[in-house]
Amino acid sequence: MYGFVSLEVSPLLAYDTQATVKQAKALHAQANRPNLFIKIPGTREGLPAIEEAIFAGVPVNVTLLFSTEQYQAAADAYLKGLERRVAAGLLPDIRSVASLFVSRWDKAVMDKVPSALRNTLGLAVSQQAYRAYRDVMDSNRFQRLASLGARSQRLLFASTGN
């Protein structure tokens, strides 16, 4: 059994969907490992690259997620990629994780909230995102894909330290 590792596409490509996808495919092919994810930012500009990489069969670690809305957009890109695979007659068994950055919230408000509320905002955002994750995984949309062999996009809580 392998542990999973991630390689990151160049941040210089962040605003170029096609270049990001090209590099994601190249990194994945070059490594040629079943336990490799390619990190693509879950930014507005990264969403089309996430969808395209999933469609191309590249496992993706969606990074730089800071809110429930960003997680939902990343999950949508993942599902769109899987749906396109199914429509093209391909198997939807492409893995993905969505990395929600937690401690950045707490750091941002550390000096602006009473001490009793410190280190609580990241947890609250994480709980909201987890509820959204469960909603996505329980949805008819995902359940249809799962019945064809899709795996859930795992929600990963990242950057959890102070």
Rank of each mutant, 00 (worst) to 15 (best):
F37Q: 00
A88F: 12
T63R: 08
S10W: 12
R144T: 15
A31C: 10
E51P: 01
V109G: 00
V102A: 04
V125I: 15
W105L: 10
V21S: 02
D138R: 07
A24G: 06
Q18G: 12
A49Y: 05
Q30R: 11
A49R: 04
V109P: 03
V125A: 07
R85V: 03
Q70V: 07
G149M: 10
Q18F: 09
S139H: 13
S115P: 09
R44P: 03
R131M: 11
R95F: 11
N32S: 09
G42E: 08
M137V: 10
T43R: 09
V60G: 02
D76C: 03
S159Y: 04
A116S: 13
A129G: 10
Y130S: 03
L90I: 08
P114V: 10
D93P: 02
F66H: 05
R131T: 15
N61I: 04
A124L: 12
A29E: 15
E52T: 15
A77V: 03
L121N: 01
V9F: 00
Q143F: 11
Y133H: 14
G3S: 06
P48G: 08
L79F: 13
A158F: 10
R131Q: 15
M137K: 08
S126D: 07
S67Y: 05
W105N: 01
Q30W: 00
V9E: 00
R151V: 14
G42K: 08
M1Q: 09
S99M: 01
A146T: 06
A53F: 01
T20D: 13
A29Q: 15
R154P: 00
N61G: 05
E8C: 07
K80S: 11
R84G: 09
V21D: 02
P59F: 08
R154L: 15
A132T: 11
A108L: 14
W105Q: 02
V97F: 04
G81V: 00
G161K: 11
L145N: 08
V86H: 09
N140I: 01
K107E: 06
A146D: 05
R84L: 13
V21F: 01
L64S: 02
I50L: 05
A74W: 00
T120P: 04
T63W: 06
F55C: 09
L100E: 06
V86M: 11
E52Q: 14
D106M: 04
